[in-house]
Amino acid sequence: MSAAGFLSQLLQLAIALTLAPILVGWVNQCRAWLSNRSAPPLLQPYRMIRKLFHKDAVVAEHASWLFRMTPYIVFAAMALAAAIVPSLATDLPFARAADAIALVGLFALARVFGALAAMDIGTAFGSMGARREMFVGFLAEPALLMVLFTASLISGSTSLPTIVDTLAHREFAIYPSLAFAGVAFTMVSLAENARIPIDNPATHLELTMIHEAMLLEYSARHLALIEWASALKLFNYSCIGLALFLPFGIAEGSADWLAILGATPVLIVKLAVGGFALALIETLSAKLRIFRAPEFLGTAFLLAVLAMLVNLMLGS
Protein backbone atom coordinates (compact mmCIF):
# COMPACT_ATOMS: atom_id res chain seq x y z
CA MET A 1 0.00 0.00 0.00
CA SER A 2 1.71 3.14 -1.14
CA ALA A 3 0.95 6.79 -1.69
CA ALA A 4 1.03 6.16 -5.42
CA GLY A 5 -1.50 3.41 -4.87
CA PHE A 6 -3.85 5.80 -3.14
CA LEU A 7 -3.43 8.34 -5.87
CA SER A 8 -4.10 5.85 -8.61
CA GLN A 9 -7.10 4.75 -6.57
CA LEU A 10 -8.47 8.28 -6.46
CA LEU A 11 -7.68 8.88 -10.11
CA GLN A 12 -9.54 5.74 -11.07
CA LEU A 13 -12.55 6.75 -8.99
CA ALA A 14 -12.56 10.21 -10.55
CA ILE A 15 -12.35 8.74 -14.04
CA ALA A 16 -15.19 6.36 -13.26
CA LEU A 17 -17.40 9.14 -11.95
CA THR A 18 -16.76 11.36 -14.96
CA LEU A 19 -16.71 8.73 -17.68
CA ALA A 20 -19.81 6.82 -16.56
CA PRO A 21 -22.42 9.29 -17.90
CA ILE A 22 -20.41 9.68 -21.10
CA LEU A 23 -20.49 5.92 -21.57
CA VAL A 24 -24.27 5.98 -21.30
CA GLY A 25 -24.34 8.87 -23.79
CA TRP A 26 -22.13 6.92 -26.16
CA VAL A 27 -24.34 3.83 -25.99
CA ASN A 28 -27.39 5.99 -26.66
CA GLN A 29 -25.63 7.58 -29.62
CA CYS A 30 -24.71 4.21 -31.08
CA ARG A 31 -28.24 2.98 -30.60
CA ALA A 32 -29.57 5.99 -32.40
CA TRP A 33 -27.16 5.53 -35.31
CA LEU A 34 -27.93 1.87 -35.61
CA SER A 35 -31.64 2.54 -35.80
CA ASN A 36 -31.17 5.39 -38.26
CA ARG A 37 -32.19 8.13 -35.89
CA SER A 38 -30.28 11.34 -35.37
CA ALA A 39 -28.18 10.86 -32.26
CA PRO A 40 -28.34 12.89 -29.05
CA PRO A 41 -25.13 14.66 -28.10
CA LEU A 42 -22.53 12.64 -26.25
CA LEU A 43 -22.86 14.76 -23.13
CA GLN A 44 -26.64 14.55 -22.98
CA PRO A 45 -26.66 12.48 -19.75
CA TYR A 46 -24.56 15.19 -18.12
CA ARG A 47 -26.99 17.86 -19.14
CA MET A 48 -29.84 15.83 -17.76
CA ILE A 49 -28.12 15.22 -14.46
CA ARG A 50 -27.26 18.90 -14.17
CA LYS A 51 -30.80 19.93 -14.94
CA LEU A 52 -32.19 17.47 -12.43
CA PHE A 53 -29.90 18.72 -9.68
CA HIS A 54 -31.24 22.23 -10.08
CA LYS A 55 -34.89 21.30 -9.82
CA ASP A 56 -37.18 21.25 -6.83
CA ALA A 57 -37.80 17.73 -5.60
CA VAL A 58 -41.26 16.26 -5.17
CA VAL A 59 -41.48 13.37 -2.75
CA ALA A 60 -44.60 11.25 -2.43
CA GLU A 61 -46.68 11.85 0.66
CA HIS A 62 -46.29 8.39 2.10
CA ALA A 63 -42.56 8.24 1.65
CA SER A 64 -40.39 7.54 4.68
CA TRP A 65 -36.74 8.36 5.34
CA LEU A 66 -35.81 5.14 3.53
CA PHE A 67 -37.05 6.61 0.28
CA ARG A 68 -34.96 9.75 0.65
CA MET A 69 -31.83 7.96 1.79
CA THR A 70 -31.82 5.30 -0.90
CA PRO A 71 -30.37 7.44 -3.74
CA TYR A 72 -27.39 8.30 -1.57
CA ILE A 73 -26.87 4.70 -0.45
CA VAL A 74 -27.15 3.35 -3.99
CA PHE A 75 -24.76 5.98 -5.24
CA ALA A 76 -22.29 5.22 -2.45
CA ALA A 77 -22.42 1.49 -3.14
CA MET A 78 -21.75 2.04 -6.84
CA ALA A 79 -18.93 4.49 -6.14
CA LEU A 80 -17.29 2.00 -3.79
CA ALA A 81 -17.68 -0.68 -6.45
CA ALA A 82 -16.02 1.64 -8.95
CA ALA A 83 -13.11 1.97 -6.56
CA ILE A 84 -12.75 -1.80 -6.30
CA VAL A 85 -13.04 -2.88 -9.92
CA PRO A 86 -9.65 -2.59 -11.60
CA SER A 87 -10.16 -0.47 -14.66
CA LEU A 88 -6.90 1.47 -14.95
CA ALA A 89 -4.49 -0.15 -12.55
CA THR A 90 -4.38 -3.23 -10.37
CA ASP A 91 -2.62 -1.53 -7.47
CA LEU A 92 -5.76 -0.55 -5.61
CA PRO A 93 -5.60 -0.25 -1.82
CA PHE A 94 -9.39 -0.25 -1.53
CA ALA A 95 -9.65 -3.52 -3.36
CA ARG A 96 -8.34 -5.28 -0.26
CA ALA A 97 -11.52 -4.23 1.50
CA ALA A 98 -13.82 -6.11 -0.80
CA ASP A 99 -13.09 -9.00 -3.12
CA ALA A 100 -15.21 -10.39 -5.95
CA ILE A 101 -17.80 -11.87 -3.60
CA ALA A 102 -18.10 -8.63 -1.66
CA LEU A 103 -18.45 -6.77 -4.94
CA VAL A 104 -21.50 -8.87 -5.80
CA GLY A 105 -22.69 -8.17 -2.27
CA LEU A 106 -22.40 -4.44 -2.92
CA PHE A 107 -24.48 -4.71 -6.07
CA ALA A 108 -27.03 -6.69 -4.09
CA LEU A 109 -27.06 -3.99 -1.41
CA ALA A 110 -27.87 -1.36 -4.00
CA ARG A 111 -30.55 -3.57 -5.53
CA VAL A 112 -32.24 -4.32 -2.21
CA PHE A 113 -32.31 -0.68 -1.20
CA GLY A 114 -33.70 0.28 -4.59
CA ALA A 115 -36.46 -2.29 -4.27
CA LEU A 116 -37.29 -1.29 -0.70
CA ALA A 117 -37.51 2.37 -1.69
CA ALA A 118 -39.83 1.46 -4.53
CA MET A 119 -42.10 -0.39 -2.14
CA ASP A 120 -41.98 2.49 0.29
CA ILE A 121 -44.36 4.63 -1.78
CA GLY A 122 -47.12 2.10 -1.71
CA THR A 123 -48.28 2.28 -5.30
CA ALA A 124 -49.00 -0.61 -7.60
CA PHE A 125 -46.19 0.37 -9.99
CA GLY A 126 -43.60 0.75 -7.28
CA SER A 127 -44.17 -2.66 -5.82
CA MET A 128 -44.40 -4.19 -9.28
CA GLY A 129 -41.03 -2.70 -10.15
CA ALA A 130 -39.52 -3.91 -6.91
CA ARG A 131 -40.85 -7.40 -7.42
CA ARG A 132 -39.57 -7.59 -10.99
CA GLU A 133 -36.19 -6.18 -10.07
CA MET A 134 -35.73 -8.76 -7.34
CA PHE A 135 -37.04 -11.42 -9.70
CA VAL A 136 -34.38 -10.55 -12.26
CA GLY A 137 -31.80 -10.24 -9.53
CA PHE A 138 -32.30 -13.61 -7.94
CA LEU A 139 -30.88 -15.35 -11.00
CA ALA A 140 -28.55 -12.65 -12.27
CA GLU A 141 -26.68 -12.30 -9.01
CA PRO A 142 -25.71 -15.99 -8.72
CA ALA A 143 -24.77 -16.03 -12.39
CA LEU A 144 -22.44 -13.07 -11.92
CA LEU A 145 -20.89 -14.71 -8.91
CA MET A 146 -20.36 -17.93 -10.84
CA VAL A 147 -18.61 -15.99 -13.62
CA LEU A 148 -16.32 -14.41 -11.07
CA PHE A 149 -15.75 -17.81 -9.47
CA THR A 150 -14.59 -19.20 -12.77
CA ALA A 151 -12.05 -16.43 -13.02
CA SER A 152 -10.97 -16.97 -9.44
CA LEU A 153 -10.54 -20.70 -10.02
CA ILE A 154 -8.11 -19.86 -12.81
CA SER A 155 -6.15 -17.39 -10.72
CA GLY A 156 -6.59 -19.07 -7.34
CA SER A 157 -7.84 -15.90 -5.76
CA THR A 158 -11.05 -13.98 -5.28
CA SER A 159 -9.27 -10.68 -4.99
CA LEU A 160 -10.02 -8.72 -8.15
CA PRO A 161 -6.56 -7.17 -8.67
CA THR A 162 -4.94 -10.60 -8.33
CA ILE A 163 -7.41 -12.10 -10.79
CA VAL A 164 -6.72 -9.38 -13.33
CA ASP A 165 -2.97 -9.63 -12.80
CA THR A 166 -3.08 -13.36 -13.45
CA LEU A 167 -5.28 -13.06 -16.50
CA ALA A 168 -3.25 -10.23 -17.98
CA HIS A 169 -0.01 -12.14 -17.50
CA ARG A 170 -0.98 -15.34 -19.24
CA GLU A 171 1.48 -16.40 -21.89
CA PHE A 172 -0.87 -17.06 -24.76
CA ALA A 173 -2.78 -19.41 -22.55
CA ILE A 174 -6.35 -19.73 -23.68
CA TYR A 175 -8.91 -20.57 -21.07
CA PRO A 176 -11.87 -22.21 -22.80
CA SER A 177 -13.92 -21.81 -19.64
CA LEU A 178 -13.71 -18.07 -20.15
CA ALA A 179 -15.69 -18.51 -23.37
CA PHE A 180 -18.62 -19.79 -21.37
CA ALA A 181 -18.08 -17.22 -18.66
CA GLY A 182 -17.97 -14.47 -21.26
CA VAL A 183 -21.30 -15.43 -22.78
CA ALA A 184 -22.85 -15.76 -19.33
CA PHE A 185 -21.40 -12.43 -18.25
CA THR A 186 -22.76 -10.65 -21.29
CA MET A 187 -26.22 -12.00 -20.59
CA VAL A 188 -26.04 -11.03 -16.93
CA SER A 189 -24.81 -7.54 -17.71
CA LEU A 190 -27.69 -6.97 -20.08
CA ALA A 191 -30.16 -8.01 -17.41
CA GLU A 192 -28.50 -6.18 -14.56
CA ASN A 193 -28.24 -2.91 -16.41
CA ALA A 194 -31.86 -2.99 -17.51
CA ARG A 195 -30.93 -3.50 -21.16
CA ILE A 196 -33.05 -4.79 -23.95
CA PRO A 197 -33.77 -8.46 -23.87
CA ILE A 198 -34.92 -8.06 -20.27
CA ASP A 199 -35.83 -4.42 -19.84
CA ASN A 200 -35.97 -1.37 -22.04
CA PRO A 201 -34.22 1.71 -20.66
CA ALA A 202 -36.13 3.94 -23.07
CA THR A 203 -39.62 2.68 -22.35
CA HIS A 204 -42.36 5.06 -21.29
CA LEU A 205 -45.05 2.48 -20.68
CA GLU A 206 -45.35 1.68 -16.99
CA LEU A 207 -46.57 -1.86 -17.43
CA THR A 208 -43.48 -3.00 -19.29
CA MET A 209 -41.03 -1.35 -16.94
CA ILE A 210 -38.73 -3.03 -14.50
CA HIS A 211 -35.99 -0.67 -13.46
CA GLU A 212 -37.85 2.47 -14.45
CA ALA A 213 -40.93 1.44 -12.49
CA MET A 214 -38.88 1.56 -9.34
CA LEU A 215 -37.82 5.12 -10.09
CA LEU A 216 -41.21 6.51 -11.00
CA GLU A 217 -41.47 8.52 -7.80
CA TYR A 218 -37.99 9.97 -7.85
CA SER A 219 -37.42 13.47 -9.07
CA ALA A 220 -34.79 16.20 -9.11
CA ARG A 221 -31.59 15.53 -7.16
CA HIS A 222 -32.70 12.10 -6.01
CA LEU A 223 -33.34 11.05 -9.58
CA ALA A 224 -30.07 12.62 -10.67
CA LEU A 225 -28.15 10.57 -8.14
CA ILE A 226 -29.95 7.40 -9.15
CA GLU A 227 -29.31 8.03 -12.84
CA TRP A 228 -25.67 8.68 -12.10
CA ALA A 229 -25.54 5.49 -10.03
CA SER A 230 -27.08 3.54 -12.92
CA ALA A 231 -24.46 4.95 -15.23
CA LEU A 232 -21.79 3.95 -12.74
CA LYS A 233 -23.26 0.46 -12.62
CA LEU A 234 -23.00 0.14 -16.37
CA PHE A 235 -19.46 1.46 -16.18
CA ASN A 236 -18.60 -1.02 -13.43
CA TYR A 237 -20.02 -3.94 -15.33
CA SER A 238 -18.17 -2.90 -18.46
CA CYS A 239 -14.96 -2.65 -16.50
CA ILE A 240 -15.45 -6.05 -14.90
CA GLY A 241 -16.02 -7.51 -18.33
CA LEU A 242 -12.98 -5.79 -19.78
CA ALA A 243 -10.83 -6.76 -16.81
CA LEU A 244 -11.82 -10.41 -17.02
CA PHE A 245 -11.95 -10.99 -20.74
CA LEU A 246 -9.74 -8.28 -22.26
CA PRO A 247 -7.31 -7.31 -19.51
CA PHE A 248 -4.62 -6.12 -21.90
CA GLY A 249 -3.33 -2.63 -21.45
CA ILE A 250 -4.16 -2.29 -17.78
CA ALA A 251 -1.40 -0.94 -15.54
CA GLU A 252 -0.20 -3.93 -13.56
CA GLY A 253 1.25 -4.26 -10.11
CA SER A 254 2.63 -1.20 -8.40
CA ALA A 255 2.80 0.70 -11.64
CA ASP A 256 4.13 4.20 -12.09
CA TRP A 257 2.27 7.23 -13.32
CA LEU A 258 3.32 6.72 -16.88
CA ALA A 259 1.71 3.33 -17.04
CA ILE A 260 -1.52 4.62 -15.56
CA LEU A 261 -1.57 7.52 -18.00
CA GLY A 262 -0.96 5.04 -20.79
CA ALA A 263 -3.75 2.81 -19.55
CA THR A 264 -6.33 5.59 -19.69
CA PRO A 265 -6.68 5.90 -23.50
CA VAL A 266 -6.64 2.12 -23.80
CA LEU A 267 -9.52 1.95 -21.35
CA ILE A 268 -11.46 4.60 -23.25
CA VAL A 269 -10.99 2.76 -26.54
CA LYS A 270 -12.04 -0.53 -24.97
CA LEU A 271 -15.10 1.08 -23.40
CA ALA A 272 -16.08 2.64 -26.71
CA VAL A 273 -15.88 -0.72 -28.44
CA GLY A 274 -17.77 -2.36 -25.59
CA GLY A 275 -20.44 0.32 -25.65
CA PHE A 276 -20.89 -0.14 -29.37
CA ALA A 277 -21.22 -3.89 -28.91
CA LEU A 278 -23.86 -3.30 -26.26
CA ALA A 279 -25.80 -1.01 -28.57
CA LEU A 280 -25.50 -3.58 -31.34
CA ILE A 281 -26.88 -6.36 -29.15
CA GLU A 282 -29.71 -4.13 -28.03
CA THR A 283 -30.59 -3.19 -31.57
CA LEU A 284 -30.53 -6.73 -32.81
CA SER A 285 -32.65 -8.30 -30.11
CA ALA A 286 -36.22 -7.94 -29.02
CA LYS A 287 -37.46 -7.50 -25.51
CA LEU A 288 -38.51 -10.72 -23.84
CA ARG A 289 -41.73 -11.26 -21.99
CA ILE A 290 -41.07 -11.02 -18.28
CA PHE A 291 -41.61 -14.73 -17.80
CA ARG A 292 -39.06 -15.51 -20.47
CA ALA A 293 -36.55 -13.64 -18.30
CA PRO A 294 -35.90 -16.58 -15.95
CA GLU A 295 -35.16 -18.72 -19.01
CA PHE A 296 -32.67 -16.18 -20.27
CA LEU A 297 -31.05 -15.73 -16.89
CA GLY A 298 -31.27 -19.39 -16.01
CA THR A 299 -29.33 -20.06 -19.18
CA ALA A 300 -26.74 -17.51 -18.11
CA PHE A 301 -26.54 -19.09 -14.67
CA LEU A 302 -26.12 -22.60 -16.04
CA LEU A 303 -23.53 -21.43 -18.57
CA ALA A 304 -21.57 -19.89 -15.74
CA VAL A 305 -21.77 -23.15 -13.81
CA LEU A 306 -20.69 -24.95 -16.94
CA ALA A 307 -17.72 -22.62 -17.17
CA MET A 308 -16.59 -23.80 -13.76
CA LEU A 309 -17.08 -27.42 -14.79
CA VAL A 310 -15.14 -26.99 -18.02
CA ASN A 311 -12.40 -25.31 -16.08
CA LEU A 312 -12.13 -28.31 -13.80
CA MET A 313 -12.32 -30.77 -16.68
CA LEU A 314 -9.65 -29.17 -18.78
CA GLY A 315 -7.53 -28.24 -15.82
CA SER A 316 -7.29 -31.78 -14.50
Partner: peptide, 22 residues
Protein backbone atom coordinates in the same frame (compact mmCIF):
# COMPACT_ATOMS: atom_id res chain seq x y z
CA UNK B 1 3.36 -27.61 -17.83
CA UNK B 2 2.76 -25.32 -20.74
CA UNK B 3 0.69 -27.06 -23.38
CA UNK B 4 1.26 -25.98 -26.99
CA UNK B 5 -0.81 -23.22 -28.47
CA UNK B 6 -2.57 -25.46 -30.99
CA UNK B 7 -3.73 -27.76 -28.21
CA UNK B 8 -5.08 -24.77 -26.36
CA UNK B 9 -6.93 -23.71 -29.46
CA UNK B 10 -8.46 -27.14 -29.68
CA UNK B 11 -9.50 -26.90 -26.06
CA UNK B 12 -11.10 -23.59 -26.84
CA UNK B 13 -12.91 -25.02 -29.85
CA UNK B 14 -14.05 -27.92 -27.68
CA UNK B 15 -15.57 -25.42 -25.29
CA UNK B 16 -17.20 -23.62 -28.19
CA UNK B 17 -18.61 -26.92 -29.41
CA UNK B 18 -20.12 -27.58 -26.01
CA UNK B 19 -21.39 -24.03 -25.80
CA UNK B 20 -23.13 -24.46 -29.14
CA UNK B 21 -24.58 -27.78 -28.01
CA UNK B 22 -26.03 -25.97 -25.00
Amino acid sequence: TQIPIWAQLINLLAAVLLLLAF
